[in-house]
Simulated assay, not measured.
Amino acid sequence: MVRLDVIMTRGGDAGETSLGDGTRVRKDALRVAAYGTVDEANAVIGVLRLHLGGDPAADAMMARIQNDLFDVGADLCVPGTGEDRLRVTDMQCLRLETELAEMNRPIPPLRSFVLPGGSPGAAHAHLARTIARRAERDVVSLAAEDAVNPAVIRYLNRLSDHLFVLSRRLNGNGAGDIAWTPGASR
């Protein structure tokens, strides 16, 4: 159970923060950057949910993903990979794969790369996708220096793919995608 009685503690005023195990680290530590970027992805998904055009299935998926991203942050904020803490599982990755496949089924294959945009929902899904990719890169950097649950990297990789397919769904199953025209601005 989480209980937050005091929000302003002044504990970070010197540029340090506490990890989930109580360890004090600099606020620019790789681990803090990684879960901070995950938090940023979660926030932009909150904005994306405002632009889903009344699609209750997409909203339910995004709500689950927002909760998953809190799990990802909880996993990352405690060093190590021990099972004594909340950890991301492969079941969460599998759910993303299943949803992605279901969303992708009615969408025609791509014949070009697509530019981020189209509908407001698709544009926000693309923004969320790019932040999820950055979170993945941050976690990979962290994993090169310290132990990270490998399911976190898999989850973030699947999430960016999921958000890409969602953007196509929100663009009328690809009908409103904006195709890249190579060299168009020469």
Score class of each variant (00 low, 15 high):
residue 152 V to C: 03
residue 29 A to S: 15
residue 38 V to G: 13
residue 108 P to V: 11
residue 38 V to H: 07
residue 139 V to F: 02
residue 93 C to E: 12
residue 65 I to A: 08
residue 90 D to A: 06
residue 99 E to T: 11
residue 140 V to K: 07
residue 87 R to V: 09
residue 66 Q to G: 01
residue 163 L to H: 02
residue 47 V to W: 02
residue 18 S to Q: 13
residue 98 T to E: 14
residue 132 A to E: 08
residue 74 A to M: 09
residue 142 L to Q: 07
residue 109 P to A: 12
residue 157 N to Q: 02
residue 47 V to L: 15
residue 105 R to Y: 01
residue 163 L to R: 01
residue 181 T to C: 00
residue 33 A to I: 14
residue 147 A to K: 01
residue 30 L to T: 03
residue 158 R to C: 02
residue 116 P to T: 00
residue 7 I to D: 13
residue 167 S to V: 04
residue 59 D to K: 13
residue 71 D to R: 06
residue 70 F to Y: 11
residue 135 A to G: 13
residue 146 D to T: 06
residue 177 D to R: 04
residue 3 R to E: 12
residue 129 R to P: 08
residue 90 D to R: 08
residue 131 I to Y: 05
residue 35 Y to Q: 00
residue 115 L to D: 13
residue 3 R to A: 14
residue 142 L to E: 04
residue 143 A to K: 05
residue 104 N to D: 15
residue 81 T to A: 07
residue 82 G to H: 00
residue 11 G to P: 02
residue 140 V to F: 01
residue 76 L to Y: 01
residue 31 R to H: 00
residue 77 C to F: 12
residue 35 Y to R: 10
residue 152 V to F: 10
residue 184 A to I: 06
residue 29 A to E: 10
residue 175 A to Y: 01
residue 93 C to W: 12
residue 140 V to P: 04
residue 180 W to Y: 14
residue 116 P to A: 11
residue 186 R to P: 05
residue 6 V to W: 00
residue 165 V to A: 00
residue 164 F to G: 05
residue 145 E to N: 13
residue 67 N to A: 11
residue 123 A to Y: 05
residue 167 S to I: 05
residue 106 P to Q: 13
residue 34 A to C: 11
residue 185 S to Q: 09
residue 62 M to C: 14
residue 103 M to I: 07
residue 119 S to C: 00
residue 4 L to F: 15
residue 136 E to C: 08
residue 5 D to M: 03
residue 157 N to Y: 11
residue 108 P to F: 05
residue 132 A to S: 07
residue 111 R to N: 14
residue 19 L to T: 12
residue 1 M to W: 00
residue 178 I to Y: 03
residue 10 R to M: 11
residue 174 G to Y: 03
residue 172 G to S: 04
residue 55 D to W: 09
residue 135 A to F: 04
residue 124 H to R: 04
residue 144 A to H: 02
residue 102 E to D: 15
residue 185 S to R: 06
residue 26 R to G: 05
residue 104 N to C: 11
residue 96 L to H: 05
residue 160 S to L: 09
residue 148 V to S: 09
residue 16 E to C: 01
residue 79 P to C: 07
residue 171 N to G: 06
residue 62 M to L: 15
residue 3 R to M: 14
residue 98 T to F: 02
residue 118 G to F: 06
residue 19 L to Q: 06
residue 52 L to T: 15
residue 13 D to F: 06
residue 51 H to Y: 15
residue 169 R to K: 13
residue 95 R to G: 04
residue 95 R to L: 14
residue 133 R to K: 15
residue 30 L to R: 06
residue 69 L to P: 05
residue 32 V to E: 10
residue 175 A to E: 12
residue 88 V to A: 04
residue 118 G to D: 05
residue 126 H to D: 09
residue 157 N to W: 14
residue 36 G to D: 02
residue 139 V to W: 12
residue 37 T to I: 08
residue 78 V to P: 08
residue 170 L to M: 08
residue 75 D to R: 03
residue 80 G to M: 07
residue 81 T to N: 00
residue 11 G to N: 05
residue 99 E to C: 09
residue 176 G to S: 11
residue 98 T to C: 02
residue 41 A to C: 15
residue 76 L to W: 05
residue 116 P to D: 08
residue 43 A to K: 00
residue 126 H to A: 10
residue 7 I to N: 01
residue 44 V to C: 07
residue 92 Q to I: 06
residue 79 P to V: 13
residue 70 F to E: 02
residue 161 D to C: 10
residue 102 E to I: 03
residue 35 Y to M: 04
residue 151 A to I: 09
residue 155 Y to P: 03
residue 125 A to R: 09
residue 70 F to M: 07
residue 105 R to V: 01
residue 93 C to T: 14
residue 56 P to H: 13
residue 65 I to F: 02
residue 5 D to R: 06
